[in-house]
Design a protein around this nucleic acid. Sequence first.
DNA 1: CGTCCCTGTTGCTGTAAAAGCAACGATACA
DNA 2: TGTATCGTTGCTTTTACAGCAACAGGGACG
Lengths: 298, 298
Amino acid sequence: MKHLRTVTYVAEVARAGSIRRAAERLNLTPSALTRQIQDLEYELGTPIFERLPQGMRLNAAGELFARHIRDQAADLDRVRSQIADLSGVRRGHVSLACSQAFVTQVVPEEVEAYRARFPQVGFTVQVRDHAQAVTALVAFEADLALILQPPPSAELHPLYSGHQTLCALMRRSHALAADNGPVRLRDCLAHALALPDRSLAIRHHIEHALARRGVELRPVVESGSLEFLRNLTLREDVISLQVPSGIPEDPRLHSRPIDARDLTPMTLVLAQLRGRSLSVAAAKFADQLVARLNRNSA
Amino acid sequence: MKHLRTVTYVAEVARAGSIRRAAERLNLTPSALTRQIQDLEYELGTPIFERLPQGMRLNAAGELFARHIRDQAADLDRVRSQIADLSGVRRGHVSLACSQAFVTQVVPEEVEAYRARFPQVGFTVQVRDHAQAVTALVAFEADLALILQPPPSAELHPLYSGHQTLCALMRRSHALAADNGPVRLRDCLAHALALPDRSLAIRHHIEHALARRGVELRPVVESGSLEFLRNLTLREDVISLQVPSGIPEDPRLHSRPIDARDLTPMTLVLAQLRGRSLSVAAAKFADQLVARLNRNSA
DNA sequence: CGTCCCTGTTGCTGTAAAAGCAACGATACA
DNA sequence: TGTATCGTTGCTTTTACAGCAACAGGGACG
């Protein structure tokens, strides 16, 4: 928007760390930028940048001002979204940070369903682990976060909280696939395992449970990609451990929940940044997602 | 500030109700204004004003946008105040809406003490009854409200809450001035009364207590000005009823608390608008005021 | 110790956005 | 139907903003 020109300049200079880099990103000349910054500093009565030989850095006053800019921009987005919603056609953008486990099934299905109703709404879906997801929320890079095992954080405001029982995932022909009921973890450990690596919360959850029993985990394959692990289970007789929400409907795949005595369920949370008000589009998408998650757990 | 030019135009048109009146207030021509409004509406993708033969009125979208503008301006004020505070000299402005009872003693003393420490901070003190005070907070016309018997309102966020026992106020030579201890209300009613009128919370409080006993109040003088009533008690043998915080130190005046069996204490509250963050200046003044009120009640 | 590259900044110049002026069409009221 | 008011629109003028080229200063390297 027009009247935000100056402040976006400030934001970009702060991001880029130098006038010249910021000017390049903004398709401007450094001179135009430096003048805008100077004018603003004059209006504020104080510099908001430190001039270093390497470039510009926000000082204390600048940090305050930069935060104000971010809040203001976010608030304007929300207002515009509300205004668009008044005219019936819902416009807007939803930015979601989610764990890898949900990009297979839950999120694409819900995004599709939502966009079928409101085609004017765009989506940004980023895959982030629980810590990164919180970071994305705080930095206003995401409106919502759908994550497993959320770190305890005062910045997080849960919109939904539920549980996911880990499942042993294998192909139909696997020895353990004969049964449908819960399977003991020790039975899984007796077979070849293809597990998520330590970048994923699932792995931490398993290790945490096993550590108390002194059992050591010896996966034959480990990976940061749940999709890779699933594809592997289709090709060899390995067992993977994944959350049910992330397991696609596939006749070639078979999954059995891990017995509750061996593993506590993982926590699944949909959250937003505390104190931030969502755009209409994001709020309605959150509603829809919560409804889906409640249906799943029922 | 420069980048708020357009939005202040919108705000002024909304306030004035017509382009021409707003243009006059802003020292602009109507043509300049109408163009700015049109440009903004184009950017928003929707009109924000209804064009009536009598002028302009905000539509639903405009109400949303106008609220955003107000919030944004208030937030910018706060940030500027925080920035000024960084440089040691505290600048800023505190706007207080208070009951009449406090303009005599409490508020002037505290404003003076505050300004002795921070001479760069300006003050706006408005006298408002409890309902008007809340209105002033909601309209961002006041940062703080110091009021008796606050109406129950979700918009109100109390920073301090205490009690004030009503006192019978008379001159030294009055018959009831012989004693210092609590006085029964019926003893007061036996004398000539000079009471606050129904525009003041004190009067409602008294009437409410008496109504339950079927007693009718017959003041010989009533007034909306507590100061007038005090000056009257200096001149004749009348009794006024006022809160202790509003009674100045004066050797010619004598006050005795009303017996607790006759009147419950009045509630005294310092409050801000819920959800609004105060400027540094206002927040610090509130701190000081709360300290004073705590000292008083101790 | 000079050279080169990076930084932000400044004087001057052109252009595009904003404001002013005057007139127009429309509505309300007498 | 005249006369207010209202918002709006060509056209002109002013002003603010962006670009160009050059300058001053600090760090890295030979």
